[in-house]
């Protein structure tokens, strides 16, 4: 049986990739994808701990995270569509009206 730490390392790596993506990519859709990566990293940890602690609550939690993520993606994509309609771009470095 693969130990808990194996899964945690995979989860950590996924999270690092997600954070890096959010910081380095300029395309809003890709940034949204990277956020999904981070959420999935958390999910993986949940499931791994669920098995380790022999408690199904972790999996139920993952279920809710998925619901929230689905809602978040739809709203996020709708915002991106609206952004594109107004600015003709979804590159976040070109959308910077709120600057001092």
């Amino acid at each position: 049986m693969v130990p808990l730490h194996g899964y945690l390392v995979v989860s950590a790596l996924l999270f690092v990739i997600g954070v890096t993506g959010v910081l380095v990519r300029r395309n809003a859709i890709v940034i949204l994808m990277c956020i999904e990566l981070m959420l999935n990293a958390a999910n993986l940890s949940f499931v791994a701990f669920s098995r380790e602690l022999q408690n199904l609550s972790g999996q139920i939690f993952v279920f809710f995270v998925m619901v929230v993520a689905a809602a978040e993606v739809t709203v996020g994509l709708a915002i991106i569509v609206t952004l594109y309609r107004n600015w003709k771009t979804i590159h976040v470095d070109e959308i910077r009206m709120l600057k001092g």
């Binding site: 999904e36 999935n40 499931v47 669920s50 998925m66 993520a69 993606v73 569509v81």
Partner: peptide, 25 residues
């Protein structure tokens, strides 16, 4: 990890529905 239900959801919801939405946009 013997989380069959979550695995199913992962494929159906994430790899299926969510990613279709992404691609669609």
């Amino acid at each position: 990890l013997q989380a069959e239900f979550i695995a199913l959801m992962q494929v159906l919801v994430y790899a299926g529905a969510v990613m279709v939405l992404f691609l669609f946009v």
